[in-house]
């Protein structure tokens, strides 16, 4: 159940951000979770809703946006979507590609009232 430790780190960053911006209450939080991370949005929400209760984010709604995998080919320069774990360039077939999206796990936005 690794989502619990992720939810705890998340709450910590939210509390820090809220304080730095003079918020008294956090209302909404947006997290971006790449397809290649092991985060299950439902588990993360479940854990977050448990641990937020005594915090500045007690009534905050957590939205988790799953970021699809995207690659970039260093040979032909094209960007493309990666489907079904096919980690090769869909244009020229090169297999040594770079992943440009879908590996991130970040807090993207915090909404609140001052």
């Amino acid at each position: 159940m690794h989502e619990l430790s992720i939810a705890m780190s998340l709450l910590e960053i939210i509390e820090r951000t809220a304080r730095a911006n003079g918020m008294s209450r956090v209302t909404k939080v947006l997290v971006k979770a790449g397809e290649l991370t092991s985060v299950e949005p439902e588990s993360l929400s479940f854990c977050f809703n448990e641990i937020k209760k005594e915090s500045i984010a007690a009534s905050a709604e957590l939205l988790v946006e799953v970021v699809p995998l995207q690659g970039c080919c260093p040979v032909c320069g094209s960007d493309f979507d990666i489907k079904d774990s096919k980690l090769f360039c869909s244009m020229c077939g090169n297999r040594d590609i770079r992943i440009i999206a879908g590996e991130e796990l970040c807090l993207f936005q915090v909404e609140g009232e001052s």
């Binding site: 992720i6 780190s9 998340l10 910590e12 960053i13 951000t17 911006n21 918020m23 997290v31 991130e104 796990l105 970040c106 807090l107 993207f108 936005q109 915090v110 909404e111 609140g112 009232e113 001052s114």
Partner: peptide, 14 residues
């Protein structure tokens, strides 16, 4: 109030 953060959640571990 909306605050854009873009903060890596796994940063503490990293």
């Amino acid at each position: 109030m909306e605050v854009k953060v873009v903060s890596n959640i796994l940063k503490a571990n990293e």
